[in-house]
Amino acid sequence: MRPIFDSTAAGMHAPWWLPGNSGRYLSSTMLIEHNGRMWQALFSVRKSDLYTRFDAFLPWLALLTGFASTMLLYMLFHTLASSRRRAIQMATGMTEELRASQIRLQLSHQKLRRLAAHADQIKEEERKRIAREIHDDLGQNLLVLRIDADMLASRTQRRHPRLNARARSTLEQIDATIKSVRQIINDLRPTVLDLGVNAAVEWQVAQFRLRTGIACEVSESHDDICLSDQCATALFRILQESLSNISQHANASRVQVKLEKCRDTVSMSVSDNGVGAAIDGRNKLGSFGLVGIEERIKLLGGTFHIESSPGAGMSVHVSVPLGADATAFPYQEESRASA
């Protein structure tokens, strides 16, 4: 068979069918009918002409690109996971530090409350000591002076009118001094507290009524309520502070004090029909009256709440256990906080 046409230039390339060249070429055969005859067309091309040098590196480039993409995705997810893990560790550390700070703050608060209870106890004991010394020393001396002045006034009444007048004037000054000393003693530590909380409340209400002219009623459900000295003193001071607030700020015309005993607790309420106040008024800067009442009740392990609104008066309610001890309660609360 002789080829009719060969697209390759003569002498430049060896034909594809020659031995040793078939592996370097790709060939294809096609039958063509022309002029009533069958012709066999042979097509061949060198394999090296089908691709360039870039095509040889394309698989490696694809492999490198895939590897780089995989590494980038890995680094991205690893960074996200590491950031989340660090954030969780940081949040955990901050939470633990916050809890530790809260525990330290709570313990410091309990220590301050214990210190306040100790200071309050010392203050009451010092008041009691000063009142006793004034009563025993100054009171006795004034009583002796009054007896001598009264004897002098009695003996000079007829013979020495001018000396008698001086003696009477001295006697009046001594009486006024004795009255002032008694008032100081009552302010420091009323002796009526030794008679019980009921008598102390009635005496304080009577003094408030006499001093201010405001109608004040006392309602008691039990007689002779037995309380510890600390608890009775605390209730008496709370009553003093409440009545003082009423006389200074409430502009009230009627006050009612209730003292009740219910099982193992004692409750006291002080109500007025004054102008009232906002509940958060106790948080004002420099306002320590209601804050002092609340702190005293907390030291005794009791409860304290206020009912008030502008124009509708105010009611202060306190309740304490019968066996309340201001020095023991902070320690108990601190032990619960530590646990």
Rank of each mutant, 00 (worst) to 15 (best):
E220A: 11
R159A: 12
N186L: 04
H160Q: 01
G311L: 07
Q256G: 06
K179P: 01
A215Q: 08
S28V: 03
L195N: 12
A215S: 02
S271R: 09
S319G: 08
G66S: 07
I134M: 14
S287E: 12
S108I: 11
V318L: 05
I88N: 08
A339C: 06
H78E: 15
F57G: 05
I103W: 07
R129K: 10
V318A: 05
L143C: 09
N186T: 11
S69C: 13
D136T: 11
A117R: 04
W39A: 13
L285R: 05
N198A: 10
I174A: 03
D223S: 12
T92Y: 04
T170Q: 10
Y331I: 14
M151Q: 14
V192H: 05
G301Q: 00
M12C: 10
D136H: 09
V270Q: 05
M90I: 15
A167E: 05
G313Y: 03
R146P: 01
D280T: 02
D224K: 09
A119I: 05
R166V: 08
A252M: 04
L193C: 04
F236L: 07
M1A: 12
L142R: 03
R296D: 03
A165N: 13
W16G: 05
A131G: 12
M38H: 10
S44W: 07
M94I: 11
R114W: 07
A312Y: 08
S267A: 15
N245F: 00
A206N: 02
C226G: 07
L31P: 11
P15G: 09
R86E: 03
F208G: 07
E126L: 13
